[in-house]
Amino acid sequence: MMGLIVEILSWILIVSGGAFTLIGAIGTLRFPDFWSRLHAASVSESAGMILLIFGMCLQAGPTLITVKLLIIGAFIIITGPTSTHAVASAALTSGETPESDEDTRKSQEGKS
């Protein structure tokens, strides 16, 4: 009985993790500019990664494999945002300025 619950739970986690990585990849293709693509990439890096790692942990059970999976997860959760920030700040210093929809909308509202 317990085994069945764990099995179903890990099914849900792993399949939804795969779905989230797919959504993130679709986002990197669909979004119009570099700055919004950063956000799409971080979907597959946070949600997809966490769900997949936890799903695999449930499959592995209390073994050394779970420890390794958690170490991989902790490593990605620390380095993922760090490298995203590095890419973003490198783009900003190279003169790649993001356009702001908020500002354009405000100035349009001001005109009308």
């Binding site: 700055w35 919004s36 956000h39 971080s42 959760i77 993922g80 995203t84 920030h85 973003a88 900003l92």
Partner: peptide, 25 residues
């Protein structure tokens, strides 16, 4: 800063004295 980046939708872009430059989608 890492928590800001970790939540999709907001990304910390640059660190300045006293505040972060954050990009939101």
């Amino acid at each position: 800063a890492n928590s800001i980046t970790l939540t999709p939708g907001t990304i910390s872009v640059e660190v300045e004295e006293g505040d972060f430059l954050v990009h939101a989608v």
